[in-house]
Simulated scan of single mutants.
Amino acid sequence: MTDTELPLPPWRRGLPKRARPARPALGQAQIVDAGLRIVTEEGVEAVSMRRIAAVFHTGASSLYAHVANKEELLQLMFDRICGDIDVPAPEPGRWRDQIRQLARSSHAVMGRYNDIARAALATVPTGPNALRVSEGMLAILLAGGVPPKVASWALDRLFLYLVADSYEGSLHAQAAAGRGVTEGEYGDTFAEQLAGYFENLPAERFPNLRANARVMTSGGQDERFEFGLDLIIDGVARYARS
């Protein structure tokens, strides 16, 4: 008789077996939560099915019952954060201010999650939260008298601007962290180096870059974001019916 076949002593019979700690129920929401924690701390590249499975002390195969692959997971993560974006009810007389408000909210939310904006590049987010934002933005533009075609294309261009600017901002933040400096310090250093480079270009070939080097490299990230936002909104306003 082996050790595993030994009978229980009389004083152990009838006692309940020692239960193993129960694992928390694994569902799509828990997987998305884990993915967002990883992307916030380490970025999109650190997110993988195997990495998330390790959080739950299980194998990657157990995740596929809830998420098809990493690409779907990233889309679910992006849609989750879209739920934090404030979408105002349309007020026709304030449509420009409302689009600006919605754009700022979207940009701020994406900025809180490292480089999550990367997940929205080269795709069209179609989750319920992303659709809520798109529907709200389109409703504001239409209420302001912007023709449907212009409003629809403006929605696409504005979203691309928000995503690209947010993603670039995350790259600057990562570069600053890698150098052990603040984002402001990194931006100032980079701007100074770039201005110096422009000023030393051959004058006969690049007279305008040389002459305007300091202007081209002036302004902080927030200031430039607002400038770009104004360009888009003012451009759309040309088409709006009074």
Score class of each variant (00 low, 15 high):
Val124Tyr: 12
Asp222Cys: 01
Thr189Cys: 10
Thr40Glu: 11
Arg210His: 00
Arg238Gly: 03
Ile233Ala: 06
Val87His: 01
His66Met: 07
Leu160Ser: 07
Gly187Leu: 14
Asp3Glu: 07
Asp86Arg: 07
Gln98Pro: 02
Arg23Val: 03
Ala54Asn: 02
Lys17Leu: 12
Tyr167Ala: 07
Gln221Ala: 15
Leu8Met: 12
Gly169Val: 02
Asp86Thr: 10
Glu199Asp: 08
Ala164Lys: 13
Glu204Trp: 02
His57Leu: 08
His107Gln: 08
Glu72Cys: 01
Gly235Ser: 05
Val87Arg: 02
Val163Phe: 04
Gly144Thr: 05
Ser105Met: 05
Leu121Phe: 10
Ala191Asp: 08
Gly196Ser: 08
Arg157Val: 14
Pro148Gln: 09
Ala143Pro: 01
Glu71Trp: 11
Arg157Lys: 14
Ala237Trp: 09
Arg100Phe: 12
Leu138Thr: 11
Glu226Ser: 11
Asp188Lys: 08
Ala151Lys: 08
Ala65Val: 06
Ala22Ser: 13
Gly184Gln: 15
Leu201His: 06
Val109Tyr: 04
Pro202Arg: 04
Val32Ile: 15
Tyr167Gln: 10
Gln174Glu: 15
Val236Gly: 09
Pro147Met: 05
Phe225Ser: 01
His107Tyr: 14
Thr58His: 10
Ile31Phe: 10
Leu141His: 01
Met137Ala: 13
Ser166Gly: 15
Gly196Ile: 06
Gly187Thr: 07
Leu8Ser: 01
Asp188Glu: 15
Ala151Phe: 09
Ala213Phe: 06
